[in-house]
Design a protein around this nucleic acid. Structure first.
Lengths: 216, 216
DNA sequence: TCCGTAAGTGAACACGTGTGCACTCCACCA
DNA sequence: TGGTGGAGTGCACACGTGTTCACTTACGGA
């Protein structure tokens, strides 16, 4: 091979190696987080789980909080992907609820650790992690509000009211996610029951929309 | 004084002393909990704050978890008191929402630490504390469902649907509590805005009730 | 008055923690 | 081919942790 290709390949390799142990750290933290809150999670534990020595941690993050924020970003990416897929569904507003809930369910089961992390730490600790989550979630609620404005009955609602209902929906759905993650026993039937309830909640909210009077 | 009275008084006093440092421990924990999650809260910190030596802790609780559960019970007592007062309000269903929200607001501001503890630890740690909260909250939701059944339109709903709407309400109100506790800046105007949104959420839910079709 | 009982003390322990420092090693570029 | 920078190591330190044990002290019942 010529120098160019060699450079490229090797450059990728060294970067790749760093990226690999970075991933190992993130995965280790994510794994350990099933057992405790992020606040009581030690740097040494994480590095041990990742297979490196404690001091090597600082080659990737300057503190555990930074690791936490990285985890937030990562988790939010999968949360956004979930919403994007749910929104892309071309069905009528009649079937959109069922489809959305089912999409949510799939994504939750496919990325349990991410969802568990976000929902746990949303109100858990006090550090930068919670702030980051709060910020992202507020952003996400706003996006949902914009989305909602496209529906017929909601077109002439005030933005404040749109935010209100978006917030109600996000809160209800996050509660559903937690129910799914904490469900014991974890069988199909239990999941179905939770999803049915989630659907009902959404249907109840949509039922109210046509009767809503913007005044007051 | 005769022996009887002496016995009683002194007995009370010694009990009282023990109860006093028990309170000091609970208050110390409650105070420190503003800064971190219950999981990362050390026995030594709590005892130092309470003004006793670490080992004396065990005269009152056998572990931090036991202290945590005691805190849950205490907090739940104030939560129940809040609901009891809101329910006792004799107004029509038209004004009941505003009155309930205002009662909630008062109690939240009067017992910030209790509400902060419950809402934070609800999904925070993994220990017996979260389980205790989950249990109490489920109980509370059931009670609300029973209460709801007294309303005209809700009389012939299935219990499952009643639970669903009760759950929706509890979740929305706990979210409101957290908004109040995390509000920056903390002025009357901000509080009013949050309360107005909370009222709207409840009104939206009640609006849906008459159109609800129990089938499916 | 006297004594048991129990709240609170203080020293000690074995361990886990975050971080500093000098180091090896090797992929990479000139 | 030789040299550099950076990922990962190993040792060390100072400190915080939960829990043990023998102890002081004083309240309360006899």
């Amino acid at each position: 091979m010529n120098g160019r290709t060699l450079n490229l390949v090797t450059s990728v390799t060294r970067h790749e190696r760093k990226e690999r142990t970075r991933r190992a750290l993130l995965d280790a933290a994510l794994g350990l987080l099933a057992g405790t809150g992020f606040g009581s999670l030690s740097l040494r534990e994480v590095t041990k789980q990742a297979g490196i020595v404690p001091t090597a941690f600082y080659r990737h993050f300057s503190s555990m909080d930074e690791l936490g924020v990285a985890l937030v970003n990562e988790s939010m990416r999968t949360l956004r992907a979930t919403i994007r897929e749910a929104r892309r569904d071309p069905r009528s507003s009649a079937g959109i609820i069922g489809a959305s809930v089912r999409t949510l369910h799939e994504h939750v089961r496919a990325h349990e650790d991410h969802f568990l992390f976000v929902t746990r730490e949303r109100h858990g600790g006090a550090g930068p992690v919670r702030q980051a989550i709060a910020f992202e979630l507020k952003l996400l609620t706003s996006e949902l509000a914009v989305d909602l404005a496209r529906f017929r009955y909601l077109r002439d609602w005030t933005t404040e009211d749109l935010h209100m209902v978006a917030d109600l929906i996000v809160t209800a759905m996050l509660a559903t996610v937690l129910e799914l993650l904490e469900a014991r026993p974890r069988d199909t039937e239990t999941d179905e029951r939770i999803l049915r309830t989630a659907e009902k909640k959404l249907r109840l909210i949509t039922l109210a929309v046509p009767s809503w009077h913007p005044a007051t």
